[in-house]
Design a protein around this nucleic acid. Structure first.
Length: 470
RNA sequence: GCUCCCUUCGUCUAGCGGUCCAGGACGCGGCCCUCUCACGGCUGAAACACGAGUUCGAUUCUCGUAGGGAGCGCCA
């Protein structure tokens, strides 16, 4: 039997990493079974839903390349269908009109809580005969009174709850608009969803939904409730933990491959394997292997994976992602080395693409002054000779490649009878204005010949002036 | 308050009754490499929440306790 999964976010914000992980699981489960993956936007709450949020979700899905086979469907486009099913349930007396005021409901809940009971609707309108003319009623689903509801959750195992814990939930508001627990069921039935993967905050909704499936005479799908994601402090992930929206990770310099790999390993594993290509994820992932425990988000591990992907993916591919950050930081890739070359050098030195762009700016535009500490330490009178010597040597190099540049620096040190550091460090400060940069041959290579020689001239002049004032 | 759910190193996890004085990864410490920062190599510290059972034998099964989470809406 083929599998149909669906990701059904409500557009009330960006695509949250927890949601992204759920979407990934849905996607993987469908792909590994050659099934179908549907995207459905649950926008029945007109107050909180927005166009921007829909777009944010679509953008997030696309950035992560979680392509779906159907959709996006919008629940707001299906109101006629929900109304039709509501009428049907009403006609079958599986649902009824309720005229209770919100005030009455609230008072009742408070009293129940005070008595140590779980607040539930008391069924007051179930058999009500009089019909208040001036009140627009809601529609309530008539939940079974007796028995238990249980299901075998694909990640949690057997879960069971007594119907006596449930009450008659509202499925349509006075204006006729449907509510969540009703629309999901209608949609999942209509769309033939066979595997419902969602956050475990929905476990408590599941028995109510199962009762609706039954009232509709529909087959039950399999349910899989995945644990949520916690912040690094163990508390529920929220804005104060920093990035929670998927696109924020793009902005912060993460590759989609890294985020996906990180998310799939959060609560799931395949032996000791840490790195998974998309094909490997599809091959090995099984929703039944997902852990039951909520997992804390660890940015440091994400960083490690991100660097791994920056180093191992084709440099040209990483360069395309890097280009976005260049634009964002106002850097012009035309004014320096090819981005792929930059990636090949910088990937092992930084954790994110944003950081890569930041530390690489010096190869694309001139800096105003030497960093004081670095200049003080390395651009001293004793550095003049090595700098002059390497300048002379470099000026003669035609083939400006790391190999040749390395030999030039090394030979200069040998000629002067000093160690590499005596030549490389002043040179590094001359080229970058700082004492931290890639290996000196790579730094020269990326800086390019004209710019390198020009900056050395500036540094030599700086040393000269400084010597004069000392 | 009530219902449901969860519990292995700081974090993500392996473990599906003996192979575990508990393995891997991130992070952290040390050493090595070294022109800086990194990368890499080697190495170290670090966990079965607690208590009863079941069993010849429990990290693994059962039940309690403690701690944590979620839900109890005319939100999704």
């Amino acid at each position: 039997m083929s599998v149909t999964t669906r990701f059904a976010p409500s557009p009330t914000g960006f695509l949250h990493v927890g949601g992204a992980r759920t979407a990934l699981f849905c996607y993987l489960q469908a792909r590994s079974a050659a099934g179908k993956f549907i995207l459905r936007i649950e926008d029945t709450d007109l107050e909180r839903s927005s166009e921007e949020s829909v777009q944010a979700i679509l953008d997030g899905m696309r950035w992560l390349a979680l392509d779906y086979d159907e959709g996006p469907y919008y629940q707001t486009h299906r109101f006629d269908r929900y109304a039709e099913v509501t009428r049907q349930l009403l006609a079958e007396r599986r649902a009824y009109h309720c005229y209770c005021s919100k005030d009455r409901l609230e008072v009742m809940r408070e009293q129940q809580m005070q008595q140590g009971l779980k607040p539930r609707y008391d069924g007051f309108c179930r058999e009500r005969q009089d019909i208040p003319a001036d009140i627009k009623p809601v529609v309530r689903f008539r939940n079974p009174d007796a028995g238990d509801v249980s299901w075998d959750d694909a990640v949690r195992g057997q879960i069971s709850i007594s119907n006596s814990e449930l009450d008659d939930l509202v499925i349509a508001r006075p204006d006729g608009s449907p509510t969540y627990n009703f629309t999901v069921v209608v949609d999942d039935v209509d769309m033939a969803v066979s595997l419902v993967i969602r956050g475990d905050d929905h476990i408590n909704n599941t028995p109510r939904q199962i009762n609706i499936y039954r009232a509709l005479g529909a087959d039950l799908p399999q349910f899989a409730h995945v644990p949520m994601i916690l912040g690094d402090d163990g508390a529920r992930l929220s804005k104060r933990h920093g990035a929670v929206g998927v696109m924020q990770y793009r902005d912060d310099g993460y590759l989609p491959e890294a985020l996906l790999n990180y998310l799939v390993r959060l609560g799931w594993s395949h032996g000791d394997q840490e790195v998974f290509s998309r094909a490997e994820m599809i091959e090995h992932f099984d929703i039944r292997d997902v852990n039951r425990k909520a997992a804390a988000f660890d940015t440091q591990k994400l960083d490690w994976l991100n660097q791994h992907y920056m180093r191992t993916m084709p440099a040209a591919e990483v360069a395309e992602h890097l280009r976005w950050h260049f634009d964002h930081q106002g850097l012009d890739p035309q004014q320096g080395p090819a981005l792929a070359d930059l990636v090949s050098v910088q990937a092992e030195r930084v954790k994110t693409l944003r950081e890569m762009a930041e530390v690489s700016a010096v190869f694309y535009r001139d800096f105003d002054e030497f960093e004081p500490g670095a200049a003080k330490k390395h651009l001293r009178l004793v550095a003049a000779e090595p700098l002059q010597a390497i300048h002379t040597k470099l000026a003669e190099i035609e083939n400006w490649q790391p190999q040749q540049l390395h030999e030039a620096v090394q030979q200069t040190a040998v000629d002067l009878g000093v160690n590499m550091g005596k030549v490389a460090q002043p040179l590094r400060v001359a080229l970058t204005g700082t004492s931290v940069s890639p290996a000196i041959d790579k730094t020269l290579w990326l800086t390019g010949k004209p710019r390198s020689l020009a900056r050395m001239d500036v540094a030599l002049k700086y040393i000269e002036q400084r010597g004069a004032t000392e």
